[in-house]
């Protein structure tokens, strides 16, 4: 009898423990949002025209509003922003912080880049493909076309595009502006491992930069029908003393006429890049 009571108590305790464990784990683990699936697959459907709504393209760190070139009045002034960097601090090595400031000072001044080129440093001004993660928070929409094996992300700015492989795992063989993207699903989160990035893009107009040792891990998590949460871990041991993180929401473009459009900016940047090589009389 005593043994029976002991057994009942033991079972009850176990039952309560299990009950507590499951309820807490339900509270902790069950996602608040159950995203629709890509038809015929078990994965969330991330398809759509998306855009960030923040001021990170001017400066990924917190910043106050600043004037633009005075001749244009308020047109090209910098909007204030609270930043997208977690903790706001960028762990630059001392020399790299100095280089960031130099980048900013020479962003629109013609400087000798090498034996041939004499041009401003800002890669966005020159219409370079924006790199990863910057392409994600430029003030332009981008379209995710998610197939069952591969994903294309088409960015309007500079017609940059990425092919993202869910069906490959070989490492990057060369460097490029938009990198080499290998992806996997972690639950409802699309995780993209980006390597093979070159050192020719910046994080923003403030001159924040990286080297070709940059390694980015991106995470896209659907949070509601029209919002993805974006997170990127930035690791670049040549420039920073430790990895750091940025995060922000991406919103679906719901405008009735929303459509992916062209922003082929090469012709817009030619004066800035080649203006000094123009024939005097043709100016």
């Amino acid at each position: 009898m005593r043994a029976n009571i002991r057994a009942i108590v033991r079972n009850l305790t176990a039952a309560i423990a299990i009950l507590l464990f499951t309820t807490t784990s339900i509270a902790l683990q069950v996602p608040a949002y159950n995203a629709p699936r890509l038809k015929g697959t078990t994965h969330p459907d991330l398809n759509g025209l998306w855009q960030a709504l923040n001021e990170a393209n001017w400066d990924i760190q917190a910043h106050a509003a600043q004037p633009g070139p005075p001749q244009f009045g308020a047109l090209f002034a910098v909007p204030a922003g609270s930043g997208i960097v977690e903790g706001n601090e960028l762990p630059y090595q001392p020399w790299a912080l100095a280089k960031k400031k130099e980048n900013f000072e020479n962003r629109l001044v013609r400087v000798k880049v090498d034996d041939v080129r004499l041009e401003p440093l800002d890669p966005e001004a020159k219409c370079y493909m924006p790199g990863v993660p910057r392409a994600t928070y430029m003030p332009f929409p981008f379209q995710i076309i998610q197939g069952n094996n591969r994903i294309v992300i088409a960015y309007e700015f500079a017609s940059a595009s990425r092919i993202i492989y869910l069906d490959k795992n070989e490492p990057s063989v060369t460097e490029s502006f938009m990198g080499w993207s290998l992806a996997r699903w972690e639950g409802d989160t699309l995780v993209i491992d980006v390597t093979g990035l070159n050192d020719k893009t910046w994080f923003d107009r403030a001159g924040n930069f990286h080297s070709d040792a940059l390694h980015v891990i991106e995470r896209y998590t659907p949070k509601s029908p029209d919002m993805l949460w974006y997170e990127a871990t930035i690791d670049d041991p040549k420039i920073f003393t430790r990895p750091w993180k940025m995060s922000f929401p991406l919103y679906r473009r719901l405008d009735k006429t929303a459509q992916f459009l062209e922003f082929k900016c090469v012709p817009f940047a030619e004066e800035l890049v080649y203006g000094h090589l123009r024939k005097e009389t043709s100016k």
Binding site: L38, N47, I145, R150, V152, A154
Partner: peptide, 8 residues
């Protein structure tokens, strides 16, 4: 790459 309703 194809998605329902789109082709890239």
């Amino acid at each position: 790459v194809q998605a329902p309703g789109y082709i890239a």
